[in-house]
Computed example of a mutant assay.
Amino acid sequence: MRLHKGFSFLNKKDQNSDMDIDELISNFQPKIKASLRHTASQEREDLEQEITIKIIEKMETIQNLEAPGFWDFLEKIQNQKSGRKGE
């Protein structure tokens, strides 16, 4: 599954997580730098660190998500519909 160009590794739990984090941060680095141009120069370094921490936190959240497969999702929807008919 390809989530975004360069971010296909987000759902692969068997890879080295340190490498994943480094790759993720390097992919976001141009956007982070561009966004920081709009802040005061004395605040940029701290803000860059905070943004990096948030990206790492969100990556861990995404990696731990358990999304149902298509057929599981379809079965759940069908069960919900059949449950309503019996009411």
Rank of each mutant, 00 (worst) to 15 (best):
L24H: 03
T52G: 00
K81C: 12
E57F: 02
D72R: 00
Q29P: 00
R37H: 13
N16M: 01
E75F: 06
Q78V: 15
E87H: 08
D22M: 15
H38E: 15
A34V: 01
S17T: 11
I62H: 03
F7H: 03
E50M: 14
T52M: 08
T39A: 06
I51A: 06
H4Y: 07
T39Y: 13
E75M: 03
A67H: 04
K76N: 14
D18Y: 02
L3S: 03
I55T: 04
R44N: 10
Q15F: 07
H38S: 15
Q15A: 02
H4W: 02
K81N: 15
D22V: 10
L74M: 12
K85A: 12
N79F: 01
L65E: 13
L36N: 07
D18V: 02
N11C: 07
A40V: 02
G83Y: 04
D46W: 01
G83K: 15
K31M: 15
R84P: 05
S17P: 07
G86N: 14
E75C: 08
A34T: 12
R84I: 12
D22E: 15
K5C: 03
S26H: 11
N64W: 00
P68A: 07
T52S: 11
E43Y: 07
L47I: 14
L3G: 08
D46R: 07
I21F: 01
D22F: 13
N64K: 11
Q80Y: 08
S26N: 14
E57S: 02
Q42S: 05
N64M: 02
A34R: 09
I56G: 00
T39I: 03
D22W: 07
K13Y: 01
A34F: 11
I53Y: 06
M1R: 04
K81S: 13
D22R: 09
L65V: 06
K12R: 01
